[in-house]
Design a protein around this nucleic acid. Structure first.
Lengths: 210, 210
DNA sequence: GTCAAATGTAGACAACATCTACATAATGAC
DNA sequence: GTCATTATGTAGATGTTGTCTACATTTGAC
């Protein structure tokens, strides 16, 4: 069987469906996603995707679990940039990494934070969310242990820290909501906002000079 | 024609459709909303709502414009509680008013911040959004003028301040995303978070003692 | 009272998710 | 290697939805 011949079996339809779904969401948003449309794009019958996903919600849950893994990875990779320094520097770097990923993948970010996606979460998605939450929570607690807002209720500190990052990502990823008329230099905007929430001792080098 | 008799004309179908839509969203979320379902609930034919809304997006835009007006009003009413004091106290009060409204109307809050709703915004919705934005921006600028982070880039300060409020609202309104395992006292949580973002001179009375 | 505009109805259509029965291919026991 | 089992893909059916069109009823301006 040649690589170009039309085969009865696709080979890896599940992965192809997930890839195409991500493309569609990135291009036209969640509302443009349909199982039949994906099947058409991939040249398979309209029922084929259902062999791999019980329903549309399960496809979205798969996609979202994947997205949470990606944003967790991106955040942890950024953490290395600040890991050798103070826990606050590490947390600061994580915030920037998180925001950068969200702004480079706005539609996927909106998907993983979409209420109707979370509503139908399966165990894999819940685990991915919890993994992300635990990662962030630990970094926040480490920073608090090292002197960041030592007197604030830990739950409130976790909420505040997450709120700055998620809120900024949500506002910037959604042009309709952006409260600022202009934002010419996105990077310096991100750095300023993160630095307000997670100040880093100015004696130390933070790696971002804008 | 008696009040109970079935009339050919509904009387105020447009308002009834909007009300019922808000109920459905509050009860079962945006994905549960359908024009035909609303028509059934109201005892009119399936095409009747289309006489008042060009399409589903226009209904949502109407609903969202209404929601923005409500959250703007709620925020401004809260502002009065801190208006006599420092501009930062006013901004702090607005943050609490905003968050309280969002948590009392989580589904409507999710609707007005929903990307697919904003995507199809009409001029009324855009105006309502801009009205909200302007209200918040002015309060932030007033606080900055009165000494809140005087050296920070104003755009970044606007983003940061909005991010705390929107982010906390989004995280708390969406149980799936809440980063804290426990939040027994929601009010004190809100107050703590807002106070972190918008500190109020502790010499002054802020009106919230938790 | 007449007539145009506003509002509601009923039927049609295409797209969709999902289900079922069936067809084909891949896999593994023997 | 054969063959049964399983995985995967197909084709058609069903019910729901948004939207359109033709038509019916009511309202209101004059």
């Amino acid at each position: 069987m040649s690589l170009t011949s039309k085969q009865y079996h696709h080979g890896d339809l599940k992965a192809a469906v997930l890839d195409r779904a991500a493309e569609i969401i990135a291009a036209d948003g969640l509302e443009a996603l349909s199982l039949r449309g994906i099947a058409r794009d991939l040249g398979v019958s309209h029922g084929a995707p259902n062999r791999h996903f019980k329903n549309k919600a399960e496809l979205l849950a798969n996609l979202a679990a994947n997205g949470w893994h990606k944003i967790t990875t991106a955040t942890l990779e950024a953490a290395e940039a600040g890991a050798a320094q103070h826990p606050s520097a590490r947390l600061n770097a994580m915030g920037r990494g998180f925001l950068s990923w969200a702004l480079q993948n706005p539609s996927l970010f909106q998907t993983i934070t979409h209420p109707d996606v979370g509503r139908h979460a399966d165990s894999a998605l819940r685990a991915a969310q919890e993994d992300f939450r635990a990662t962030i929570r630990q970094a926040i607690e480490a920073a608090q242990g090292a002197g960041r807002h030592p007197d604030v209720n830990p739950s409130a500190l976790v909420l505040y820290t997450n709120a700055v990052a998620f809120g900024a990502a949500m506002l910037l990823a959604n042009p309709q909501l952006s409260p600022m008329a202009d934002h010419r230099d996105l990077n310096s905007l991100i750095n300023t906002v993160i630095d307000m929430a997670v100040p880093v001792n100015s004696n130390e080098t933070t790696g971002h000079s804008s």
